[in-house]
Simulated assay, not measured.
Amino acid sequence: MAAVEERRSAALALDPEEARRARGARLERVGRWLLPILIMVAAVWLWDRLCVWNEIPRYILPRPGVVAATLITDRALLFSSLLVTLRITFLSLLLAVFGGVGLAILFTQSKWVEMSFFPFAIVLQVTPIVAIFPLINIYVDNQTAKLLLCSWIVAFFPILSNTTLGLNSVDRNLLDLFRLNGASRWQQLRLLKLPAAMPYFLGGLKIAGGLSLIGAVVAEFVAGASGQSSGLASRIIEAGYRLNAPRLFAALFLISLTGILIFLALSLVSHLALRRWHESALSAER
């Protein structure tokens, strides 16, 4: 038996088609990380050379080294503002998760509730936040509550919509099997519908994670908040007024980096939650 397995392994090792596929898989794994890094390095180098070749003043377009130096010299101000933005982002995302999942469960338990309230969720989603904010500004006194509400409105709908779709996409044969075995509505929800909706919820969560950051930044732009307890959007506005382009680019860099890290973190959570049973994660591991 061992000899047969050894000959089979040797045949596979000598198979040119199998070897070509193995090389292609290795190259794809390396290229998935290497190519974006190389492109980013090339873009930064080109940015720096354009500033040098055209002698562009730093108050119009600073060189990458100047932006990096600004990140260090202004780190106390920038990172304190980053914490404010992150607080609004994660609080709004947390509220969007609880509100979106809770309302989606209500929708699946009662079609009357879904028909009554889903149009209001659509109205909130399709109405620009800059149009809603004047009303929020009238009725809400607390500045943090204003920003939190604006960011929540932006992040809420993807979770609600995706989770509702997942809960309604349960295999009808399995649902009939649960009913034939006398499962209660709570048992159907807990043992069948919620696990089936998990991939949809996680997909909506990845979308909502980025939207909550966008909503927090846009809300602060619209609110025009200022002062030491302000977020990164206020630093961008302030730097624009003062023609402090290096600080403006540094704040933009922190916002972009934060968005990338949020997406990667939520993608990791999705992969860890689905890798042992869902086809989307299983195919990624092959």
Score class of each variant (00 low, 15 high):
Phe90Asp: 01
Ala155Cys: 09
Leu95His: 02
Leu93Ile: 07
Ala131Glu: 08
Val67Ser: 08
Ser110Pro: 10
Glu55Asn: 13
Thr127Trp: 12
Pro134Gln: 09
Ile129Arg: 06
Leu91Ile: 14
Val44Lys: 02
Ser151Asp: 05
Ala145Glu: 13
Phe120Ala: 14
Val52Glu: 14
Thr127Glu: 13
Pro119Cys: 03
Thr73Met: 03
Val67Lys: 04
Asp141Phe: 08
Met40Gln: 12
Cys150Leu: 15
Asp48Val: 09
Gln109Cys: 09
Leu82His: 09
Val41Ile: 15
Leu91Lys: 01
Gly100Ala: 13
Leu46Arg: 06
Leu82Ser: 10
Arg63Met: 05
Trp47His: 04
Ile88Glu: 05
Phe107Cys: 12
Ile122Glu: 12
Thr144Ile: 09
Phe118Cys: 00
Arg87Trp: 13
Leu86Gln: 01
Thr85Asn: 07
Phe90Val: 08
Trp45Phe: 14
Leu83Pro: 00
Leu93Gly: 02
Val101Lys: 07
Ile136Asp: 02
Pro128Met: 11
Ile88Trp: 04
Leu77Pro: 00
Leu86Glu: 01
Val66Glu: 14
Gly102Pro: 01
Ala96Lys: 09
Ile138Asn: 11
Ile132Thr: 09
Val123Gln: 00
Pro57Val: 11
Ser151Lys: 05
Phe107Lys: 02
Arg75Phe: 03
Leu86Pro: 00
Leu82Gln: 09
Pro57His: 06
Phe90Thr: 01
Asp141Pro: 00
Ile56Ala: 03
Asn137Lys: 14
Ile132Ser: 07
Val52Met: 10
Ile39Gly: 04
Val84Ala: 06
Ala42Thr: 12
Pro134Met: 10
Asn142His: 06
Thr73His: 10
Leu106Asp: 04
Pro64Arg: 05
Cys150Met: 15
Phe133Pro: 00
Val44Glu: 04
Leu124Asp: 08
